Simulated scan of single mutants.
Amino acid sequence: MAVAWLACGAGPVWANPYECLIEPNQTVEVRSSVEGVIEKVLVKRGDRVRAGQLLVQLESSAERSAVETARFRSEAGGRLAAAKNRFDYASKKQIRSQELHSQNFVSAQVRDEADAEKRISESELRDAQENIELARHEYRQAQDLLNRRMLRSPFNGVVMDRMLNPGDLAESGTGRKPIMKLAQVEPLRVEVVLPIAAYGKLKNGDSAEVMPEGLGGRYSAKVSVIDSVFDSASGTFGARLELPNTTGKLPAGIRCRVDFPGLQNLPAKGSGVKATPSK
């Protein structure tokens, strides 16, 4: 983008304004990590979305069946209950056999058989417990596979464009067509190019006031990035500000002016210097 910085003396309200551009904090192309037919697209261009909101659902009947099967197995407690009952019975039988053997009412063989029965029932109980735990892991895995077919918004933002519709094939991979494009508009970022004379007079966290072009109003922003690599051809460097936009009132992609209180005493350099396009 090409941004110019203006000279001092712009008036009593704007002591030392610089041209800037308000942009989305980030834009992302929503793609599927798995291939599948799109069953539902729940938003359209211009809609505002919240972080975690369901945007797209792929056809997933097989995955849902797998989730239900895995859930049933994870909750089935019949084998575990039977193993517990056998272990309780074998434990009591072992205790009685020990007592009877100490009184010479039963042989050592009967006592040993009771001990072996308890150990076997204990192993069966452990096996049943492990099977239940394994079923729970399989249920979580099935749920994760199903969730991969439900695409959610990574942030609060707005739908910039929708490229695919229900019935289209969503293909995985960066070279494939995205389903939609989202822009994060809370917060917004403000890009400005400043003269080298301003370097060192700003620091991260400094306050500034931004006036969007054509909308009016003054909005507080804070410096978040100061470039340390200059453009020698134009004698400028870039800076970025973070502009809160909790209400979503401010649009992105418009020009603006920004005033830095810390640069009010910066000497003027004629009518302004044009900056080279930033990368």
Rank of each mutant, 00 (worst) to 15 (best):
H101V: 05
A128D: 07
G175T: 03
R86L: 10
P178R: 05
H101L: 12
C256D: 11
D112M: 08
S278N: 07
Q53K: 03
E171Y: 01
L263Q: 04
V43K: 11
K40I: 00
L151Q: 10
L182M: 07
M1Q: 15
R152M: 13
R71S: 14
M1L: 12
H101T: 03
Y219D: 02
G238V: 06
R31N: 07
C8V: 04
G78H: 12
R240A: 07
V43Y: 08
E23D: 10
G36D: 10
V34I: 03
V192F: 00
V273W: 04
A66Y: 04
K40F: 11
L164G: 05
A108Y: 07
Q109M: 07
A15P: 00
M1V: 09
I132H: 06
V159S: 12
R240Y: 07
R189F: 09
K269V: 01
A76D: 14
E63I: 00
L146H: 03
P24Y: 10
L6K: 05
L21E: 14
V106W: 07
R96C: 02
I179L: 12
N16T: 01
R31K: 11
L42H: 10
C20I: 00
R126I: 03
V43T: 04
T236D: 11
A198D: 03
K84W: 08
R48P: 02
R50W: 03
S220Y: 03
L100F: 15
D127H: 09
D144F: 10
A170L: 07
I95P: 03
E99A: 13
R162C: 11
M150G: 11
